[in-house]
């Protein structure tokens, strides 16, 4: 183990109650417990969080940049999913 880097972990921090966890960064740690402690020291030195998740980087599946356009293309031609698509006469309220 001496000549190997510790595994990589992704750190997610909830900045305050009512908000979701957001990605803060990554770090190396030998196990989950130390990853949590290191994350506290590294990413919440000034009260930036009330809760932390650490996830092994290898456990994350990401969409591929190779297909970034085709992958998200189905959303591009459906403007009718947005409320601004619809014409409503002036004066109609609460809509």
């Amino acid at each position: 183990m001496t000549n190997t880097d510790w595994p990589l972990w992704e750190v997610f921090v909830r900045s305050r109650r009512g908000l979701s966890h957001t990605h803060a960064g990554s770090l190396h740690a030998p196990d989950a417990e130390l990853a949590l402690r290191n994350a506290r020291d590294l990413y919440t030195r000034r009260g930036e969080g009330v809760s932390i998740w650490v996830v092994p980087s290898s456990a994350i599946t990401a969409s591929s940049p190779d297909e970034k356009d085709p992958f998200f293309e189905p959303a591009a031609d459906k403007p009718y999913r947005h409320p601004t698509f619809y014409e409503i006469p002036d004066g109609v309220q609460h809509l």
Partner: peptide, 15 residues
């Protein structure tokens, strides 16, 4: 870590 997780490399494959 090795003792408590079995593998000792429960996280990612490192850098």
């Amino acid at each position: 870590a090795a003792k408590h997780t079995g593998a000792g490399r429960s996280g990612g494959t490192g850098a």
